[in-house]
Design a protein around this nucleic acid. Structure first.
Lengths: 192, 192
DNA sequence: ATACGATACGGAGGCCACCTCCGCTTTGGC
DNA sequence: GCCAAAGCGGAGGTGGCCTCCGTATCGTAT
């Protein structure tokens, strides 16, 4: 039940570990400054390591994204349990989705990429998915049990919708908020 | 009130017009076969023209997409008026959004690209946007007037949500359907 | 301390897509 | 038929992705 720790690929040898940290730090900065489509060569340069080193450690851009955002992803999961403890079922779900959204907004469109990846099966996202799903499922089930969310809804659907909201990169925070409100209304049981 | 004709950039000189048609045809085929991220050089080769010709006529991939999909875009607009005539207000809106979605699904993720572009101001999308908006606004307003959609909702929000649904490229049609249903429920007035 | 196998480094270079530029060709009005 | 305007095309510059392999570094066993 408790979330599993996300796997870290941080190597053990001293020089490798140092370069790993340099790369992740450089990537975090670069992603924050220029979005997640920054060139990988730029990141290697910024980190002061060769491009070969980057590619050996992170075979794909996604692998690098993973390493950069492990912490944030974990914190998204953790927050779910906080909300579950402190809020009424539907409010907890709403708050969690809102935080998921805000997280994607500030960090490029990570939530979007994450949402897409939830359907794929990279080794990393396997665990990540388990954690996010476990957390989200808990909130969703409780909201369902309280009769505040239609019982036939799947977590994957909800996540996909929320992820889709800020897929288009440059959305205004207020608009994102309104869109989320629409979705939240859509989750509630039919008026009948 | 009637939709304006979408602008065509088709040139008048004989050779230019011929190449224009070759390019648009080749692009339509290529996009259908390999998705909208086919390399532009491939398309030029397929059309049997030089890459320079392609770029002179279509300065960006988007420009080419526009030319390829003018007809389809127009038909999306037209359908709105059909639905308006034949269906009850909310059903008309629902049907139109469904068709908008299916359209994006079959043709790569054009609806997604279109949705993003709705926020931008390319000269083409200006007119396109006007047409889509006019059509959508009509349906939305009627649904509001019938009390079946909350009055504070903006068309842009609705379009964005629907566009977001199939942003992630590889979504299953049934899932897309479910997501749209959630959104549709979210449009209805509060149960209170 | 040294030696040595395992591990990691780095950047040159191949590949490919994007896009520009300009000398040559075609068109169509006169 | 002439010729200016319009159009053509592809060579080549830029830059990102990724691989490969000779060299450097690390950590352990002696």
């Amino acid at each position: 039940m408790a979330p599993q720790p996300l796997p870290s690929t941080r190597p053990t040898r001293a020089d490798a570990a140092r370069n790993y940290d340099l790369l992740v730090t450089a990537a975090r900065e670069a992603f924050a400054e220029h979005g997640t489509d920054t060139s990988l060569e730029d990141i290697a340069r910024r980190a002061g390591v060769g491009i070969g080193t980057l590619y050996r450690r992170f075979p794909s851009r996604t692998a690098l994204l993973e390493a950069v955002y492990v912490d944030e992803i974990q914190s998204v999961c953790d927050r779910a349990y906080d909300f579950d403890r402190d809020l009424e079922p539907f409010e907890a779900l709403a708050a969690w989705l809102r935080s998921f959204l805000g997280y994607g907004l500030s960090k490029g469109s990570l939530a979007g990429e994450l949402t897409i990846a939830l359907g794929k099966d990279s080794p990393f996202f396997k665990v990540c998915k388990v954690n996010v799903q476990e957390a989200g499922q808990l909130l969703l089930d409780k909201a369902k049990a309280a009769g505040e969310v239609r019982s036939e809804l799947e977590l994957a659907d909800v996540m996909r919708l929320v992820g889709g909201i800020n897929m288009g990169r440059d959305i205004e925070p207020e608009q994102a908020q309104r869109l989320l409100d629409i979705v939240l209304c859509g989750l509630r049981p039919a008026a009948s």
